[in-house]
Design a protein around this nucleic acid. Structure first.
Lengths: 141, 141
DNA sequence: CAGAATCCAACTGGATACTG
DNA sequence: CAGTATCCAGTTGGATTCTG
């Protein structure tokens, strides 16, 4: 009988690594818009919408480093750079879809749980951002 | 024929939400140490090791809010507080294990990809922290 | 077009001290 | 024991400006 809990704990390190990589704000979204095939930088940016150029560049480079996608430069004027998922990147979509399916199916339960929590702890309410509140208080004085 | 890519993109929002919740540095680890059953605050802290008390408290409260675990207080001196996974929390382990298995199986490929990347881009090397380097440069002048 | 560089606000997590 | 309250360093991500 092996200490299962301990084993799982050890197995968690690579999970943590992966989560750090795909845990970025836009990573999963990028991988999914690329599931349709090769895309140019500006296409990705437009498709996602709301992401800054700097962050998109950084995220794409991280994904390239880890071998999840390839970056292909066609030296022309203007330059043409396209990104495409690798086999590894496409394979990553499988566990991601499992997680996604779970999220879609269980989101109601999570939202319900939050409702119960706030009903039981009214003081914890919707993430108070006292920055504005205090500014208002100052203005009110 | 429905636009699959677009559908997936939409389905990504809940995935993003879930990732924001479990994307914390210790969340997955906490869920896994709790898989063995109910545990006290200090037990979890000791089992994980390296987590600060503040962050553990915050992470546990988040997980409680989302209904992944319960917090049970036994008013005594000293106080006794135990945490236990809910059905929802235990169910979350399934997709997490899928992701974990993928991570374990594919980590070699990711590490290999990084090796290739650094071989091709020597200047990108292991996250340079130029703060010290520039300080040294100044000191050297 | 596809970035690189810079500046900056916001958030995360750690260290420490104090409390019921 | 199980927190709460501060303070603080490091990181993330956005806005803007400049370039091959």
């Amino acid at each position: 009988m092996k200490p299962i809990a301990h084993e799982i704990t050890n197995d968690c390190r690579p999970v943590g690594e992966i989560l750090n990589q795909i845990g970025g704000k836009w990573t999963v979204l990028i991988i999914n818009v690329l599931s349709g095939g090769s895309m140019r930088f500006s296409e990705i940016k437009r498709e996602i919408g709301g992401i800054s150029q700097k962050v998109l560049t950084a995220t794409l480079r991280d994904l390239e480093m880890d071998g999840f996608l390839t970056r292909t430069v066609t030296p022309s004027i203007p330059p043409h750079v396209s990104y495409e998922l690798t086999d590894l990147g496409r394979d990553l979509q499988k566990p991601l879809h499992v997680l996604g399916a779970w999220a879609v199916n269980n989101r109601p339960k999570v939202l319900e749980a939050r409702g119960r929590y706030f009903a039981a702890h009214p003081e914890a309410m919707p993430k108070r951002k006292p920055r504005i509140a205090s500014a208002l208080r100052v203005a009110a004085e």
